[in-house]
Each structure stands twice: as structure tokens, then as C-alpha cells.
Design a binder for these strands. Sequence first.
RNA 1: UGAGUAAACCGGGCAGUCGCGAGGGCUUUAUGCCUUCGAGGAAAGUCCGAGCUUCGAAGGGCAGGGUGCUGGGUAACACCCAGUGGGGGCGACCUUAAGGAAAGUGCCACAGAAACAAACCGCCCGGCACUCAACUGAAGCUUUUAUCACGAAUAAAGGGUACGCAGUCUUUAAGUAUCAUUGAAACUUAUAUGAUAAAGCUUCAGUUGAGUGCCGGGUAAGGAUGCAACGGUGCGGUAAGAGCGCACCAGCAGCCGGGAGACCGGCUGGCUAGGUAAACCCCACCCGAAGCAAGACUGAAUAGGGGGGAAAUGAAGUUGCCCGCUGAGUCCCCCGGGUAUGAGUCGCUGGAGAUAUCAGGCAACUGACAUCUAAGAUAGAUGGCUGCCGCUCCUUUUUGGGAGAUACAGAACUCGGCUUACAGGUUUGCUCAUAAU
RNA 2: GGGCCCAUAGCUCAAUUGGUUAGAGCUACCGGCUCAUAACCGGUCGGUUCUAGGUUCGAGUCCUAGUGGGCCCA
Length: 111
Amino acid sequence: MKREERLRKDYQFKKVYKRGKSRVADHTVIIFRKNDENYNRLGISISKKVGKSVVRHRLKRLYSEAFYQLKDAMNKGYDIIIVARKGAAVLKFADVLKELTGLFKKGKILP
RNA sequence: UGAGUAAACCGGGCAGUCGCGAGGGCUUUAUGCCUUCGAGGAAAGUCCGAGCUUCGAAGGGCAGGGUGCUGGGUAACACCCAGUGGGGGCGACCUUAAGGAAAGUGCCACAGAAACAAACCGCCCGGCACUCAACUGAAGCUUUUAUCACGAAUAAAGGGUACGCAGUCUUUAAGUAUCAUUGAAACUUAUAUGAUAAAGCUUCAGUUGAGUGCCGGGUAAGGAUGCAACGGUGCGGUAAGAGCGCACCAGCAGCCGGGAGACCGGCUGGCUAGGUAAACCCCACCCGAAGCAAGACUGAAUAGGGGGGAAAUGAAGUUGCCCGCUGAGUCCCCCGGGUAUGAGUCGCUGGAGAUAUCAGGCAACUGACAUCUAAGAUAGAUGGCUGCCGCUCCUUUUUGGGAGAUACAGAACUCGGCUUACAGGUUUGCUCAUAAU
RNA sequence: GGGCCCAUAGCUCAAUUGGUUAGAGCUACCGGCUCAUAACCGGUCGGUUCUAGGUUCGAGUCCUAGUGGGCCCA
């Protein structure tokens, strides 16, 4: 994933949080908002309540990989933040992929 | 073979495919392609020690903090190695905050006579007073006994007796009392006085012993307690006791010998000094402070202005305080004006570096030489899927099936340590027990 | 990354320089009062003092290591 396809600054996150729409699943929340670009940008937020360092890093990689696999099918022009909820430590990659697919369909990002 | 002890190490492997970060190269400079590398023994906790950086100095003192057996290693350390003492284990071995309590202060609850300084109870000696007991002597008394003397009060006869005798026996008479018509039976004694002896009692004196109280002295053996009681046990010794003397043990001081030292061994001496310093403290040594969000650079910006006040009799800074140092680019208020993507680059990985050999050293470690270069992100890379094997668990149809992010855990300036977490496995040295040869 | 603080009953807090059985208020439960509820009155229960080890005769308190929570910085 290129550096431009990630949300990197605090003001970018704040914009999405303030104006974005959200969809919720059992272990994951997404918040998304239209941007002015012709590509999607991703931010991932995992709080310390989810687990320790190893758990959080692993979850982030799983989300990132799942987003990569879904990327080509998605509508373009969105800033998306993925937030892990408390029980997310038990997830495997297949579960993550399933959950994200469902969420994106709910948000009409995925046709 | 079993049990144990110490140390070192591994901590999934191979292959394919899709991705991620960094370096290098090629290219149409937009991207793309090729190639190399890419988490740990603890990366963790942040408990110590350093490097490095900054602080108009980092100078002195106080305060504060740390370390604490000895010698070595190291850049340094609270780490490591080798030893000493104490404790544990049959042993290999393990463990130990281990300076000073004869510099001072504090504390030692409850209990206990008493918690370190003597006293109390007790034991012993002496004096005084009182009480009791025994013995001796003197005086007095008599409720008692024996003997003698005296001796009132009925006779006779006989037996008996050496002779007598009222009092030893028989008979008769008389008297008294009871019952009573006669009569019968029974009794006939005792006391006082004097002497001697014995015994007892009272008083006084003396001696001895015991007890009580008071006073003076000796002693610290014993005193139910307590974690702990002016060294422990035993024998002698003493008025009672006591290191007062002796033996053994523990401790102290001095001397001699060994060792680099902690310390060890021996001899001699005088006999004693409770515990607690992870209580204050004393002694020796060490420590300037803050930390890569340090800090430097580029770009942009807080601007640049005006007025008033404080201040060279010292603003502000400098470690908590004082001294000392620097010395105006200081502080406060008002007016008006301006600004918002808190960015990027460096620090940032070649370093007290890794591996092997040789040499020195018991070892930690050090030196020489050779080879190698081994993550560097910044919303933060190291991941997903598939196949085979290995491991663990479950199931059981046992050449099977299923589950498992496969233990603990994820670099953030870098090193040296410590501590904590860790499925399972490998290797080596040593000890003990048993068996066989 | 770095610096610092806290932990005692279900909750909020005490506990002198280490001392004998860790207290108080609220809560909960039981009883009383009331036609009933609240308020009020009386009583009872409730603690491995975050965990482990050590110093000490004795630890909530002192020391060491860990666990959990919270705060600060440009």
C-alpha cells in the first residue's frame, strides 16, 4: 500500500471522525467519508483495551491485508477508518475478511 | 537404572505465491523492473550503570541520594569472577543488604522483680524489741499418788498369825438405810493435820533453739514471665554467694605464625560487653542536572509597532538552600495588528560490534591476528494464503480425522547488566542410591 | 520514548514514630415505627490491608521484586 493511501495526520483523522458515517459489526467499527481524491485512504485505530502490543500489531496487519484484497472491487474516493472493538483479539484472517466485506457492503463502498 | 545438581544452547523446518519497509542498480524521471537485507533471549519492566546531547559552568559548602566481607575484572555499575565468614544439604552444590551496638540518641508492646541501670522478693551475717518451746536454778501452791506419824468413831467369840491388829475370814449381838405384816439381805466408812519422795501448776532469772518486726551490712546462686535476663554446663568453695578456683564450650584483648586481604591456626591474659542500624546515626567510597519528545539545521511563523509602569539600590538564569558566577536579548498592563496542514532533513545506526584461532590469567576478562558487516520504521515495515514434515491437545473408524495467530512475547538513540515471563526440547560436567562385572 | 503517583469492607475514606482483636459513614440483611413506602430507631453480616519474598519478638506501616490503575511532557 502506498503512503498516499494511508491516513497519516491527526487532522485527517479528526475530519473523518467529525463528519463521517459509521457502520458497526461484532468486533469492528468503520467510519468513512468522501474525499476529493480518486483513490481510497485507510486508517486503523486499535486501543490498548483490545490487547497488548503483539495483539494490536497482528490485528493491524490483518486489517491491512484484508483491505488490500478488497481494494480493487471498492468504489473510489473514500477516507476509511477501521476501529477494533474489545473482543477483536480472537479474530482470524478469514473472520476479518468476512466482517470487513459485510461492513463495506452496508456502507455502500462495496457494490 | 533411578533420583538430583550445575552450566551451555535451541525455541519450528522446507517450498510456492501475493504483499510491506530500507539500501543499491537500471529506466521513459511518471512509474515500473532487478537484486540484497529485514525482531528477541528476553526486543518487556525501566531497576541500575555508561556512551551521546543540551543547559550564559559543570566552582565550593550544606542538604539529599546510593553502595557496604576481601581481592580482582570493566568505560562504568547495585553487574561478573575468584575467595573468606554465617546458614542449609549425606553429597555434587545452593544461599547470604555480611562495616560499626566497649560515639551518642531512640525503641524493646503484653507479661515479668527487673529490658541494661540499679533496685525488689529471697538467701546469709550482726544488733535491738517481742512471742513461743526445751533445759537448769530459786520461790510459792496442791486437784494427785506412795510411805510414815497422829488418829475420832460398835462389841463378843472363834479360825488364822512368830506375836499383834476394829480394819483377813466365820458366827452372834447392836446400829443405820431401803422394802415391809413378820422377816430377809446389804453396809459399818471416811476426813483433817504433819513429814518425806514423786508429779503438776504459777512467778522470776539464766542458757539454747525457733518465729515475727525494725535497723545496718554481704550476695546476685534462685524468683512462674518473655523473642531475649550482666556468658553456658559441671565440680569444688563459701556465713550465704559469686569466674572466687578448675575443666569444657562461646566471646574479647594482646602476641606469634600463615595469607595480597577478608580471615585462619597457636599461645597468653583478664574474666564480660543483651537485641535492634531494611530506627535515627557514625565511618569509608561514589553522585552537577535533564534527557533523542535531548538537540542541530531548512522553510514558515510567534512578527514589526505605539503608550504606561517596575528594575543597575540588580531583571532574568544557574540543582532544593546558601555562597559564588553570568550581566539586560528582562518583567507587567493597555492599544492596534497578524497567524493555524505544530512540516521536513539530520541525530539514526560501523558499534566498549560478531565469529574463529593463538597467547596471558584458576576465572571474570584482556591482548594479537584473520574474516565478516548483521533491521532502522515515524499513523510506525517484518504479514496473508497453500502444500509437506515436526510438536501439543481432542476424537477414535488407529497407515485415520479435527483443532492450534503453534511457549513467553514485537525493535523506536545505542550499549553493559539485573529482574520478571516462557510450551517443549538438546548437550555436557558432577553427586547420591541400587544392581552387575 | 521519558518522568511521577496510587492501591485498606460492595462504595468513600481513617489507622500517632512498627505494638496486642484494622475503625467510621453510606450500602446490604434482620427487627421496630406506618394502613403501606420513604425518613427515623436498634442490631447483624461483610477485610488473605493488590501479590510474593525478606528484616523484626511482632509488618497495613520498613526493604526488595512483581501486578493493576491513574497523571504529566512537544
